[in-house]
Design a protein around this nucleic acid. Structure first.
Lengths: 249, 249
DNA sequence: GCAGGTTTTGCAGGTTTTTGCACATAATGT
DNA sequence: ACATTATGTGCAAAAACCTGCAAAACCTGC
């Protein structure tokens, strides 16, 4: 068995079973454990797996550190949420993406508000669910583990059947020339569909992400109606967006 | 079981239940208590949990006031979950309803299990989402506030396109003559569809609900393959179901 | 084709990690 | 206060690891 072939097999096994033992691989492939160890070493350096004493684990194992994580820049996101809430009127149909900023928005919704909120983001849905007067529509499909949002053809098709009044987008990068960009293929698809189908698009982002670029393009600035950051709207960094005709808050 | 794997499991358990006992972990994972103690020691140094006499506590336990949401008859439900888990095999497609018994099932899933779980229950989806190796499919539609499950024509249609290997139903009433019944119209629709489309139907319920009736009919006993309660399977109350050809656990 | 260099692999050895056990000590409960 | 249970420490055996080395397989340029 060729080295490359062997390593491909190991990666396959890790992805399949989420763990492999050096001893098991050694006898399966019939090479010495030293060789397996060297393979694991290399694959680990390439980021294909996580090497541990006795074998290796899939990457999905490492990132189990959930609920009590502090949200990055939470204070800024609270300010953004306060501003964003003002755009929501009684009875509106509101489509939202995922992300921690959107969660803050959900928490900032006045209890008396009655409106219909639509989302494929599970954390967002959980927040909406606890609100007494919201109608909640869940967009179903395969759940993406890292973004905690449903992605796929079903979700896309469902979004395209909607004509929401308002769309809140938590975004990861916006730039005067390159528009809104992101790094996750599936998420980009969804956000594009959301932007296209909504009457009004509101982008939420902390100022840190302003004037930054990610590899995948979502839409140009012309599609954005409102941009909300934690900065005052006369801040110099925001002027290019005002000039582009966006309402900046 | 690898050390790292074991520690990941411990962290998961701590985050899930907010506390773990050294003794319990020792017998669950089948290593000596000394090893568990050393693990807790290390994890505590890494700040993943708080080590205390007898076990460990979640960090969030210390931060926030624990919203001691006690589930009714939780111990029984844990027993049920333990029994139910045994039916799930690697790679299966599993459809589940909602309800607290299903949540316990989700928490009892072994960390190494990789399978595809499908549900419209938001609390269930949240549990599945935290599991490192599950594929999760969310069934979308309007969210019913009191059952926290998506209901409607979309959800029904989606369920009917599936052919899952296994279906877990948390049920509210079962009776030798009247079969499985429930009280919520929308939920009944969903459960009917789930029963019809699944290869194998497993009903989970605490013994209290055995031999009781609710106003809406879901299905007859003939559609049920397996019934799981917290009672031993030779308990007299269960005999009518054994007689009906159901595998009782 | 073939000399010279590189890559891959197994092996020997010495080192480190992991784990369970024994025993003394501290915490807990009745 | 006393029995029970949990803890920490030291120890030893097994398992896994790392390092260097040498043989084999392989590329490469002439």
């Amino acid at each position: 068995m060729l080295k490359r072939e062997r390593q491909a097999y190991i990666v396959q096994q890790v992805n399949l079973h989420n763990k492999v033992l050096s001893t098991a691989l050694s006898s399966e492939i019939d090479v010495s454990e030293d060789t397996i160890r060297r393979d694991l070493q290399e694959l680990s350096e390439k980021g294909k797996l996580i090497k541990v004493h006795g074998g290796a684990l899939s990457h999905s194992f490492h990132d189990i550190t959930y609920p009590s994580k502090k949200v990055y820049a939470q204070d800024s996101k609270k300010i953004i949420a306060e501003k964003a809430v003002k755009f929501i009127k009684e009875g509106m149909f509101v489509l939202t993406s995922g992300g921690t900023t959107i969660i803050e928005l959900a928490r900032a919704l006045p209890v008396t508000l009655s409106a219909t909120f639509i989302s494929g983001s599970i954390p967002a849905v959980v927040e909406y669910m606890h609100h007494p007067n919201l109608e909640v529509i869940v967009i179903g499909d395969k759940l993406s583990k890292n973004s905690k949002i449903t992605v796929g053809a079903d979700a896309l098709a469902r979004i395209n059947t909607l004509k929401p009044d308002l769309c809140f987008l938590g975004i990861n990068a916006i730039h005067p020339q390159h528009g809104v960009t992101d790094s996750d293929w599936d998420v980009v698809q969804l956000k594009q569909a959301m932007v296209e189908t909504s009457q009004k698009v509101v982008c939420l982002t902390i100022s840190e992400k302003i004037n930054s670029i990610q590899p995948l393009h979502i839409c140009g600035l012309d599609k954005i109606d409102i941009l909300i950051t934690e900065l005052p709207n006369n801040h110099p960094a925001l002027q290019p967006y005002v000039a582009a005709g966006i309402t900046v808050m």
